[in-house]
């Protein structure tokens, strides 16, 4: 089956791109393979693990479960866009301080999800952090305890 390619305009970390893609091309592939955004990690490929999380128009989404054509006109941010010339954001600094990662594969996705979550809920309980903020992400190293600590610390700093 030959299919027509679709032209998609997408802004990634502040830079506008026009790409011609097969409709089946995934946003995660476009970002990694065409734009070099290898900070997006591919885990389960099925909307469960959240390692590929980016923000699309300020909302976190799993980029492995979006077709690039669905991102036409969208403003995409990856974790690389958070730090300001090497100065980490409060969330990133809290992850460092609380040792909230071991292998680090899940971290970029978690940071992007938490970044959105703390915009809506500035003072979450530990239960809310587990059941809401981290619900869409899996970590297979830490057992989550230090991640919850880091989100708590970040929320305190953001107040």
């Amino acid at each position: 089956m030959t299919v027509e390619k679709e032209e998609v305009t997408v802004t990634v970390n502040g830079e506008s791109h026009v790409v011609s893609v097969e409709p089946r091309e995934l946003l995660s592939q476009t970002l990694r393979e065409r734009m070099g955004c290898t900070e997006i990690n591919i885990g389960c490929e099925s909307a469960i693990c959240g390692a590929c999380t980016v923000q699309s128009d300020g909302k976190s989404v799993k980029s492995c479960t979006r077709f690039t054509v669905q991102a036409d006109g969208a403003d995409i941010r990856t974790v690389s866009d958070l730090a300001d010339e090497g100065t980490l954001t409060d969330i990133q600094q809290a992850f460092t301080d609380e040792h909230a990662l071991q292998c680090g594969y899940c971290t970029p996705g978690i940071v992007m999800a938490v970044d959105e979550y703390l915009d809506h809920n500035t003072d979450p309980s530990r239960e809310e952090i587990r059941n809401e903020a981290l619900q869409g992400n899996l970590c297979r190293c830490t057992g989550y305890e230090n991640i919850v600590d880091a989100v708590e610390t970040a929320a305190e700093k953001l107040d």
Partner: peptide, 10 residues
């Protein structure tokens, strides 16, 4: 509903 805010957003 499962999937976290990333799924709930879309």
């Amino acid at each position: 509903i499962t999937g976290g805010q990333q799924v709930h957003n879309v």
